[in-house]
Every structure is written in C-alpha cells, then in structure tokens.
Design a protein around this nucleic acid. Structure first.
Lengths: 147, 147
DNA sequence: TCTGTATATTTGCACATGCAACAATTGCAA
DNA sequence: TTGCAATTGTTGCATGTGCAAATATACAGA
C-alpha cells in the first residue's frame, strides 16, 4: 500500500465513522427530546466568545455556509435562544448574541450530549488513542486551511 | 485531561474535520462537473458486490437511511446508472443493479475524486499517520456496531 | 469626492432529508 | 394452517440545504 492509498483509506473511514457516530449521537439527543447537535455547538461557541459573535465568523468557525447560518439563527431566535444585533463597527454586519435562555438551554443539553459521546467512544479508544486521533485530525484541518 | 475529555475532544475534531474536508472535496467534484460523492460510493459498493445488492443492505453498508436510499436510487436510475430488479428470493425486496453506464460513470469519476482526496491529505499526513487514523476510526465503528 | 468593486447578510426557488404512515410480503407461534 | 407481528421498500408532508441573485454597506483608487 502506498502512502496515498493509506490516505484514501483514512478518508473512507473518516466518512463512514462520521456518519455512523453522528447517527447514534443525534438519535440519542432526539430520543431525549433535545435539539440537534448544531444548536449545542453554536451556543457553546457564542459562550466561549463572550456571548456574541459576527454571523460570518460564526459560520466560518462552525464550518457552516453563511446562508445556512442565517437560517439556523432564524430558528434558534424563534426559540429565544439567540438574538441578532446590528454591529456598531460595521453596518453591513450583524452580531449573533446568546440570550439567558440560550445559556440555560446549552446547560440543559450538555449532560445528554456528554453521555451520548461518552457511550459512543468509551471502551472504544484509550485516552492515548483519542489524543492521537484528535491531533491527527487537527493536522488535516490545518493543511486544508492553508490553501 | 481525563480520558473522557480526550475522547470528547477527538469527537469534536472528527466533526469539524469531516465538515471541512467534505466541503473541499465535494467542491472540487462539482467544479469538475462530476456528480456528488455519494454516487461514487454507491457505484463502487455495487461493483465490489458483483453488480447487485439488496437495497436495504446497500443502505446499511453506506450508512444511509432506507428512505434516502430509495430516493438516491431514483435519481441515479433516472440517469441510467442503476436499475431496480425484484429479488427472486424475497418478493418484498428489490435489488439495485449497476448498469454498464454506471460502471463507466464510476470510472469517469475516479480520477477527479482521487485527485481531490490526494490534494486534501497529502503533505498533511505521513503514511504511518494515515494508517493509524484509519485503524483508530475502524475501532470506533466496530464499537458502535456492537450495540 | 465620486465611482466602481468587494464584503456581509438575506431570500426565492429548486432539491435533498427526516418522520410517520402505508402496502406488500415474510415468518413465527398457537 | 391461521393469524399476527416483524421486515422491506416507498411515499406525503414538513423541514433543511445549495445556488444564484438581491440589498446594504464599506473600501480603495482616480
């Protein structure tokens, strides 16, 4: 097997592992009456950023298309979890701002999400393997972003 | 960092690396006027199985919901790449069968797909790293399938 | 300053996906 | 054997996503 073949095989595994794991984890969230994963990620990202972020930055950070971020924010603000606020420094843009209800929702989701992740991975990987996996994936991302 | 934290971090990286890589690779296929990735995977799976497979088995193998497999096959058979045939051994079921045009299309797609994968990964990972990545992901899948 | 070009976000429309229900068929258990 | 639950594949409807165009604003150069 050449190096390229090994890389293609890794890509193939990445695709199917992602699909399978996502199906399991999303299924558990839904069964627990929780919102989709993407909501959690968005709320977490906003909290980490101190509560607000430019919509485009949020889209880039979460690897979501801008127009899909627009609509994700529409749905979440229908639920009162985020608000839009004009950006004072650039009137083209808008800020997505997490609300108190948004912070509460993220906190509610976490134990369900955490349990789902832990069930999917524990006993599958040792800590060392998991750390190596994370590091390797980070290298792939870093390479792609350089282009 | 505990082992569970390492695993959660790996999951987070898996999500974002998947999203980013898929975006890049699908983008290149589309730019080259090629069909989506899922078509390639389906055609390849059929060829590997000797040309035909039960629809449900195909769905399970490709980690796609059954009803989405129904529709994927609809689209691909509109393009003449696959056909449906009743399964002689179980009259509830149906076989998906690859056509000569389907085999030709897969062959056409491969160089584009291959180039896209190679550009995404080469220089990012050594052969050893890629092999370790594939092996680790396989373990995760094996664990999930045990449930 | 004025003009043209680039950027940020949104939207209309087509297409894809999830969910729940349906028809056809199988297989097990009484 | 009969009857009932489980399985296979499909479909209607609601929801989500991709693409291209529209709107508003910023910025760079003449």
């Amino acid at each position: 097997m050449t190096d390229n073949e090994r890389q293609r095989s890794a890509w193939s595994q990445l695709l199917s592992t992602h699909a399978l794991t996502l199906r399991v984890i999303e299924g558990k969230l839904k069964a627990a009456g929780q919102p989709p994963l993407a909501w959690y990620d968005l709320l977490l990202e906003l909290e980490r950023a101190g509560g607000e972020m430019r919509i485009g930055d949020l889209a880039e950070r979460l690897v979501v298309e801008r127009y899909n971020m627009t609509r994700l924010l529409d749905r979440m603000s229908d639920d009162g979890l985020v608000e839009r606020r004009p950006d004072p420094t650039d009137r083209r843009g808008a800020l997505a701002v997490i609300t108190p209800a948004g912070m509460a929702r993220r906190a509610d989701m976490w134990p369900h999400y955490r349990t789902a992740i832990d069930e999917a991975f524990s006993d599958a990987l040792t800590g060392v393997e998991a750390a190596a996996l994370a590091a390797t994936l980070r290298k792939v991302k870093a390479h792609l972003k350089r282009d």
